[in-house]
Design a protein around this nucleic acid. Structure first.
Length: 601
RNA sequence: GGGGGCGUAGUGUAGCGGUUAACAUGCCACCCUGUCAAGGUGGAGAUCGCGGGUUCGAAUCCCGUCGCUCCCGCCA
C-alpha cells in the first residue's frame, strides 16, 4: 500500500508516529517559508505542513503542487501548536509534518470545483462526472447508497431470503411501459426486451420452490425522464411464498424501520408503525396515491355548501356530480394587498391549468375578523354558507382558501399540484421528516374509456381481495386488489401485491381486461404453463432503490445518487451515448436505419 | 409530442438596444513561517451556445436550432 493511514483517521493518539498518506490536494496555502496542504481522500482531510527550514526537500515539492494533484506524503504526526487547532476538522488536533512529498500524478485545473459546494451547470457535471463524483457530498451519496443495499442484503439474508440473478436479455414483461429492444444477431429479425422488472421471473422462482427470493435488480423502461425517473434504475425485487398481504407488509415495514434506524438515525419518522391509507382516502384527501404527508394541506369536500352558493359553475358541477374541494393555505393571504393577492393566485392558477383545470376560485380571510373577505367568489356565498364553510375547513384570519371544482380526475390533479406548490411556498416541509405510509385497497381495475374495457391498475397477476371475489362478476370496478404501495415524502418507494396463483381465477381476469387466452398464451405462455405444476400462494414487492437513496440523502433528484445517470434526453454526455452504430454492426444484426434519420448523422 | 426556465472569461453570476461587457471565484507571477474560504500586489483570460433576421447600432428584440433543466402527456 502507498499509504499507512487514511486522511480521516489521525488523532492525538497518533502523535509521534511516522505515517505515509496519499490522496488529492484539496487546497494549498502558501505562506512563503511554510506551505499547508489539505490532503483529501475518501475518508477525510489531513493538514500537511512543509517547512522551508525544517524540511526543505518537501517544501520545494510543495511549491510545485496544485489543486487535485495526487501526492504521497511521508512524515510525522505532530500536535498542532497551541491556538492553531481546527475544531471544524475531525483531524484538526494534529498535522503531518512532511519529510518527503511525492507527486504521483498531476492535474489540470479542474473545470468544476471539487473543494467547494457550489451551484453547477448540469452539463458540466455530467461531462466531467468523474470529477463531480470526487466531491465529498457525492461520495457521501454513493456510499450511503452502498450502505442501504448492503443493509438490505444482510437483513433479508438473515430472514431466509436467497438472492438470485435473472436475465437482462429477456422478453416483454407485463408492465405498461415501453420496452427497450435488443436485436438478436443469431435470430435475424427477432429482439430481446430488457426487463421492466423481474416480475415474471420472480413468480417462476416461487413456482420453483425458493419461497423467499430477492434481488437488487436493474430495470429498464423506455419512457421520458423525470427527476425521479431514469430509463435504467434499480429495484429491490422481492417475492415470498405462503404469505398473505399482512405478511409482506410486516416484513417490509420491519426493513424500512431498520433501515432508517441504521442509516439515517438523525431523521424523524412520521409514525411508527407506518400509517396506512386506503387508495380512496389518499385520492380524496391528497389527490394522489403517493401523498406527501410531511404537511397537512388536506383537501376538504365542500360540495354540499358550494352547490347551494350563487356561483353558477359550482352549482352546475355539483348538479353533475362533480366535487368542489377546498385547500386551506394557512396565513397565505396574510396582509397581501389586492394586487399581490391576485398575483399569487394568478401564479397558482397558471400552474393548475397545466393539469386541465379551468380556473382557481379563492377566498382570502382578512386579518381583522370584522372585515369582509376578499376574492371573486366571496360574495357568492350567503353569510350562513360562509360560516358553515369556514367552520368546515377551519379557516383562520389571514388564511387563503383555494377552491377547485371539475371532474374527479382533474380535482385530484389540482389538489396534488396545489399541495406540493403550497408546501414549498409556505415552507411547511421539515427536511428531517420521513413521512412513510402504506397505501392499500387499490381498485383492481381502472376503466379505460378509449378502449372501452377494464385495465389492471397494477398488472394482470394482481390478486383481488378475497372478500371482493364476487364483485368480479357483478361490479368489477368496485373490486379491490391486494396491491400495496410504500410511499415516502410524496414519492412512490415501492409497490407490490399478492399474486394470482390459481389458474381458474387468472382465466377469469383475462377477458375482463380485454386479454384473450390466445394472446396471453403467446405473451406469457411459459407462466401460464408453469402455473399448472403446483404454485404456492405468493406475493411480493419492488422498491425503488434510487428514490429511497435520494430521500435518505436529502437529494433533489435521483441523479444525485446514481454514479453515471442519463440526462433528460436519455444521453450520457461524458461517453456520448447513445451513438450511431457502425454499418457493419447493423448489417450483422440485419437492421436498416431509415434514411431521414441517417441524414443527420 | 407540448409548455416554462436557463445558456455571457476555466467556473458561478450581473448586464437586457448605445463608447473599452462587469463582479466573485479559479488560474499565472511575485511577496509572506501557523494558515485552514489564508492575506497582499500585479497579470492573463469572453468571437455573450449556434444560425438567421430587425436596427444607424444586438449579449440585449424577433425567428429557427442545439444543449441542460422543471412540468404536462407518457411512466407506477
Amino acid at each position: 500500500m502507498l499509504k499507512t493511514h487514511n486522511c480521516g483517521e489521525l488523532r492525538e493518539e497518533h502523535i509521534g508516529e511516522s505515517v505515509t498518506l496519499a490522496g488529492w490536494v484539496n487546497r494549498r496555502r502558501d505562506q512563503g517559508g511554510l506551505i499547508f496542504i489539505d490532503l483529501r481522500d475518501r475518508w477525510g482531510m489531513t493538514q500537511v505542513v512543509a517547512d522551508a527550514d525544517g524540511t526543505p526537500d518537501a517544501h520545494a515539492v510543495a511549491e510545485q503542487v496544485r489543486n487535485e494533484y495526487v501526492i504521497q506524503i511521508e512524515g510525522k504526526v505532530r500536535q498542532r501548536p497551541d491556538g492553531t487547532e481546527n475544531p471544524e476538522l475531525a483531524t484538526g488536533a494534529i498535522d503531518v509534518v512532511a519529510d518527503t512529498i511525492t507527486i504521483l500524478s498531476k492535474s489540470k485545473t479542474p473545470p468544476i470545483y471539487i473543494n467547494k459546494e457550489d451551484r453547477m451547470d448540469e452539463t458540466m457535471r455530467m461531462q466531467y462526472r468523474y470529477l463531480d463524483l470526487r466531491r465529498p457530498s457525492m461520495q457521501n451519496n454513493i456510499i450511503l447508497r452502498h450502505r442501504i443495499v448492503k443493509f438490505i442484503r444482510d437483513y433479508l439474508d438473515n430472514r431466509g431470503f436467497v438472492e438470485i440473478e435473472t436475465p437482462i436479455l429477456f422478453k416483454t414483461t407485463p408492465e405498461g411501459a415501453r420496452d427497450f429492444l435488443v436485436p438478436s444477431r443469431l435470430n435475424p429479425g427477432k429482439f430481446y426486451a430488457l426487463p421492466q422488472s423481474p416480475q415474471q421471473l420472480k413468480q417462476l422462482l416461487m413456482v420453483a420452490g425458493y419461497e423467499r427470493y430477492f434481488q437488487i435488480a436493474r430495470c429498464f423502461r423506455d419512457e421520458d425522464l423525470r427527476g425521479d425517473r431514469q430509463p435504467e434504475f434499480t429495484q429491490l425485487d422481492l417475492e415470498m411464498s405462503f404469505v398473505e398481504r399482512e405478511d409482506v407488509l410486516q416484513l417490509n415495514e420491519g426493513l424500512v424501520l431498520a433501515l432508517v434506524e441504521a442509516l439515517v438515525p438523525e431523521k424523524k419518522l412520521l409514525s411508527k408503525p407506518l400509517r396506512r391509507l386506503t387508495y380512496t382516502e389518499a385520492m380524496e384527501t391528497y389527490g394522489t396515491d403517493r401523498p406527501d404527508l410531511r404537511y397537512k394541506l388536506e383537501a376538504i369536500d365542500v360540495s354540499d355548501i358550494a352547490g347551494k352558493s350563487a356561483f353558477a359553475p359550482f352549482q352546475q358541477n355539483v348538479a353533475d356530480g362533480k366535487p368542489v374541494k377546498v385547500i386551506r393555505a394557512p396565513g397565505m393571504a396574510g396582509q397581501l394587498s389586492g394586487t399581490a393577492l391576485r398575483k399569487v393566485t394568478g401564479e397558482l392558477e397558471t400552474l393548475i391549468r397545466d393539469v386541465g383545470a379551468k380556473g382557481l376560485g379563492y377566498i382570502a380571510m382578512p386579518l381583522d375578523e370584522t372585515a369582509e373577505v376578499k376574492g371573486p367568489i366571496g360574495n357568492k356565498f350567503t353569510v350562513e354558507q360562509k360560516l358553515a364553510l369556514f367552520e368546515r375547513v377551519g379557516a383562520e384570519p389571514g388564511d387563503l382558501l383555494l377552491f377547485t371544482s371539475d371532474t374527479r380526475e382533474i380535482v385530484y390533479a389540482v389538489v396534488d399540484k396545489l399541495r406540493r406548490e403550497l408546501a414549498e411556498r409556505l415552507g411547511l416541509i421539515d427536511p428531517q421528516l420521513l413521512a412513510f405510509c402504506w397505501v392499500i385497497d387499490f381498485p383492481l381495475f381502472i376503466w379505460d374509456d378509449e378502449a372501452q374495457r377494464w385495465d389492471p391498475s397494477q398488472h394482470m397477476f394482481t390478486a383481488p381481495m378475497p372478500e371482493d371475489l364476487e364483485l368480479l362478476d357483478s361490479d368489477p370496478g368496485k373490486a379491490r386488489g391486494t396491491q400495496y404501495d410504500l410511499v415516502c415524502n410524496g414519492y412512490e418507494i415501492g409497490g407490490g401485491s399478492i399474486r394470482i396463483h390459481d389458474r381458474e381465477l387468472q382465466e377469469k381476469i383475462f377477458p375482463l381486461i380485454g386479454q384473450t387466452m390466445e394472446h396471453a398464451t403467446e405473451q406469457f405462455g411459459h407462466i401460464l404453463e408453469a402455473f399448472e405444476y403446483g404454485v404456492p400462494p405468493h406475493g411480493g414487492i419492488a422498491w425503488g432503490i434510487d428514490r429511497l437513496a435520494m430521500i435518505f440523502a436529502g437529494a433533489p433528484n435521483i441523479r444525485e445518487v446514481i454514479a453515471f445517470p442519463k440526462t433528460q434526453t436519455g444521453a450520457d454526455i461524458m461517453a456520448h451515448a447513445p451513438s450511431y452504430a457502425e454499418p457493419g454492426q447493423l448489417e450483422e444484426l440485419h437492421i436498416d436505419v431509415v434514411a431521414d434519420v441517417l441524414e443527420e448523422a
